[in-house]
Design a protein around this nucleic acid. Structure first.
Length: 427
RNA sequence: GGAGGGGUGGCAGAGCGGUUGAAUGCACCGGUCUUGAAAACCGGCAAGGGUUUGUAGCCCUUCGUGGGUUCGAAUCCCACCCCCUCCGCCA
């Protein structure tokens, strides 16, 4: 959520910034609503003031033992007028609030212009695209030929966009998650968190998945309704919701390995092959909660923590600075990490690291006490995948495949694989 | 699922329907004292919002959430949510 003061005082600037990311803000409509709100609020508060004053004097008269009836008569239809004013004000406020919930974050000033991924900027590149010296297979061929994937079973169980992993590959998948988790805990100083996979609507609203992207999430229609998390970002970031952090304890650094659930509505026909885009996938998620002045540095460091995973796994990747039009709803600035996939002869997203500044914090009332002012102020939030486990598995398979269809286990993973060095087909 | 208890400021914890935005304690901030610190003592200290050039003043809202009664609700009524204790069930 954007700062309402900014919207009031600098609407044009906000509109221009939002236009950069393709969000059309109806300035006139907003300004009209806002001035109506002001009018109604002043009026309502005047009436409330009058009611309070009169009630107070009635109380005092009664305490003195005087006759109250004349004062009661004077109150007249004040109550009805007030009720009407309050009702109207609430209507306007709801309308404004609706707009606020739906408005995306302002892009950072240094973000490149652009509409989609074609305008993203490559910031750096690590490693060279793998040259196996033979025609590389993609992970689906490798998985099925090795007997490590059972797509028919997955479809039979759950329909499209699900995966069943078997044997050594399932173990490798687990090893990847464990390796990532341990790396972040031991080397990057994150606190491991185990958190719910089902969350209330407020949590989804806090991080920005609701109300606008209801269709992207799986909802469980219990009472109350809950949502399957589309990312652990929701659970982890909301740990700071409705709280006031002590300044000395930040940045908070959380890491969790969780499954993620996405409906992938609107992506029909996209990445239908293999396990690039699934309704259910595992992810190791990094979240930092920090004071405003440190969020840029924290964002850079978190991105580095995600990159460290790729480097440890010896996977070639590039770091992309997303253009204004390609960023997610809540982000102010985002780096995507794209890993090289020999099977696709392309770089594909494997991590997205974003700085949300105070956008999520305002939604979920996540604050810290600023020792300089003594007042609670909004924190900044940052998150990133470190990494998507399913896609990391795909990347390892494709980059470490050998001519015979076997897959070499990257050095970094071997201790999590009981020392196993190669995945041999059929096991 | 059944029975009972409870949800109040950063925390703990009072609160006859009428100057209660809320006692008190802790924490925190400032001061006195001290070589310094501690202790003691004095003072300050909720959040959000409106108006405004204003971190001044004035005003509004907020005591789990949503309704209701009333001139007036933290206090009364209704519904819901959550927490705790006991019973049942269960990994």
């Amino acid at each position: 959520m954007l700062d309402p003061h900014l919207l009031r005082n600098d609407l044009e600037t906000v509109a221009e910034a939002l236009a950069r990311r393709g969000y059309p803000l109806d300035v006139e409509h907003y300004a009209a609503l806002e001035s109506r709100r002001k009018e109604l609020q002043v009026h309502t508060q005047e009436l409330q003031n009058e009611r309070n004053t009169r009630s107070k004097s009635i109380g005092q008269a009664k305490a003195r033992g005087e006759d109250i009836q004349p004062l009661l008569d004077q109150v007249g239809r004040l109550g009805e007028d007030l009720k009407a004013a309050e009702g109207e004000l609430e209507g306007v406020r709801d309308a404004l609030e609706q707009l606020h919930w739906d408005m995306p974050n302002l892009p950072d000033g240094e973000i490149p212009d652009g509409e989609d991924e074609r305008d993203n900027q490559e910031v750096r590149r690590w490693g060279e695209p793998t040259e196996p010296g033979f025609e590389p297979r993609d992970h689906v061929d490798l998985g099925e030929q090795g007997g490590w994937m059972d797509p028919e079973a997955a479809t039979h169980l759950s329909g499209s966009r699900f995966t069943v992993l078997v044997g050594d590959l399932a173990r490798l998948h687990r090893a990847l998650a464990q390796f990532m988790l341990d790396l972040h805990i031991r080397k990057h100083d994150y606190t491991e968190i185990y958190a719910p996979y089902l969350v209330l609507p407020d949590a989804m609203r806090g991080t920005g998945q609701l109300p606008k992207f209801e269709d992207d999430a799986f909802r469980v229609d219990d009472d109350p309704a809950r949502y399957l998390i589309p990312t652990a970002e929701v659970s982890l970031t909301n740990l700071a919701a409705d709280r006031i952090q002590e300044a000395g304890r930040m940045p908070l650094k959380f890491v969790a390995h969780t499954p993620c659930f996405r409906r992938e509505a609107g992506s029909y026909g996209k990445d239908t092959r293999g396990m690039i885009r699934q309704h259910q996938f595992d992810k190791v998620e990094l979240v930092q909660i920090c004071i405003p002045g440190e969020s840029e540095a924290c964002h850079e460091s978190l991105t580095g923590h995600a990159e460290a995973v790729l480097q440890a796994l010896e996977l070639p990747y590039r770091t992309m600075l997303l253009c204004a039009g390609d960023m997610g709803f809540a982000a102010r600035k985002t780096y995507d990490l794209e890993v090289w996939l020999p099977g696709q002869q392309a770089y594909r997203e494997i991590s997205s690291c974003s700085n949300f500044a105070d956008f999520q914090a305002r939604r979920m009332k996540a604050r810290w006490r600023n020792p300089e002012t003594g007042k609670p102020e909004l924190v900044h939030s940052i998150n990133g995948s470190g990494l998507a486990v399913g896609r990391a598995l795909v990347a390892v398979m494709e980059n470490f495949q050998q001519r015979d269809g076997s897959i070499v286990v990257p050095d970094a993973l071997r201790s999590w694989m009981g020392g196993q060095e190669v995945l041999e087909p059929g096991r």
